[in-house]
Computed example of a mutant assay.
Amino acid sequence: MKRFILPVAAAALVAACSDANDPSSDTSILPDAPSEAEAPLADAALSGPSAATVRHLWAVVGQNGSLTRGSRVTGVTKLGPGQYEVTFNRSVTGCAYVATTQNAYSQALGIFTASGHLSPNGVYVETKNQGGGLTDGPFHLLVACGPLNTKFAVVGYSANLIRATSGTTLTPLGSGRYNVRFPSGIRGCAYLATVGDPGSQLVFSPSGVYTGSGPDANTVYIETKNPGGGLQDGVPFHLALICPTTAS
């Protein structure tokens, strides 16, 4: 039986993010070995005094677009109703963007991500009501680029792997069902996923994405569904894993 853990993973999004003002909080975290495509990102992350100063990229944003707290965030721009761009201090075009709305808000809101519309350092975020209309809402955002204790995968509209941690593979299993297999064990990790365009386009589908344990210790099982709960193809998504320093 597959174990669906999306609510736990959503909570882990915030818990896994260290205080950006506490340089001692990440001293036990070392980056994964980067692929050739990830190397510039890893090099940028490690260009400071030591690996202990490396930070996750994350943000907690208020309904009005104000930055509540975050790490390596240089600003938040509110582009319109339910439209935001969070800008970091480095390029994030090669990363995955996962987000969740805050449950303190009065409406049940969906959230969708894409690459920045204003700069390569940005992540574009939309919050929508259940009817698909853009609606202001507070949210938490995590950007996973591979260094530190994160792994990631971005899957496109045609069930194609756009970018991912080096060595990751994607296996479509049927309508709206996938196995995403990473090169090392991920059983001790939290799985977070968000419907999101692999580039900088808008996502019009109100579909959802759901995670669970895969058939082996290296695999995350994914389902994409329409609002009625039926499995649906053609839904792009971003997947991020937050792992301990040694995954099992």
Rank of each mutant, 00 (worst) to 15 (best):
L41H: 01
T53L: 02
S28Q: 09
S71L: 13
P23H: 05
A15G: 06
W58A: 01
A39R: 10
T27M: 13
D32Q: 11
P49R: 10
A37H: 14
A15R: 12
G70H: 01
T53M: 02
A59E: 00
A42N: 11
A39Y: 06
Q63C: 09
S18E: 13
P31N: 15
D19E: 13
A37M: 12
A44Q: 07
T27F: 14
V73M: 04
S25T: 04
A51Y: 14
S50K: 02
V61E: 01
T74Y: 02
A44H: 11
L13K: 04
Q63L: 07
V61Y: 00
A20N: 11
A52R: 02
A51I: 11
R69K: 11
V61S: 02
A44C: 14
S71M: 14
S35W: 05
E38G: 03
A59D: 02
L57V: 05
R55T: 02
A37V: 12
Q63T: 14
T68Q: 14
P31G: 07
A42D: 08
H56A: 04
A52Q: 07
Q63K: 08
P40E: 08
D26K: 04
L30Q: 05
S18W: 04
V54I: 10
S47C: 06
T27H: 10
S47P: 01
S47E: 07
L46M: 11
A59I: 04
L13Y: 05
P23C: 07
A20F: 12
A20S: 13
V60R: 10
A42L: 12
A51L: 11
A42M: 08
N21K: 15
P49A: 13
W58G: 00
D26R: 05
I29Y: 03
G65R: 05
L67P: 00
A59Q: 03
A16H: 13
S28M: 07
S24Q: 11
A45I: 04
L30W: 03
R72S: 11
L67Q: 04
T74P: 00
S50W: 04
A52M: 15
L46F: 13
A44R: 06
A16R: 03
L13T: 04
V61Q: 01
L67R: 03
V61H: 02
A20E: 14
D19H: 15
S71W: 06
T68G: 11
E36A: 15
G65M: 06
I29D: 03
P23V: 06
D26F: 04
D43S: 12
A16M: 09
A52H: 04
A44S: 08
A15W: 09
A16P: 06
A44E: 11
N64E: 09
S35P: 12
C17F: 02
S47Y: 04
D22W: 15
A16K: 03
S35V: 13
C17I: 03
S47V: 05
T74F: 01
Q63N: 15
A20V: 08
A45Y: 01
E36Y: 10
A39D: 08
V14C: 08
A44F: 14
A20T: 09
L46I: 11
R55F: 03
T53P: 00
L13C: 13
C17M: 07
P34D: 06
V73E: 00
V54H: 01
G65I: 05
E36Q: 13
D43T: 10
V73C: 04
A39F: 06
G62I: 08
D22S: 14
S71K: 09
S47D: 08
V73D: 00
A33Q: 14
R55D: 01
S50I: 03
T53R: 00
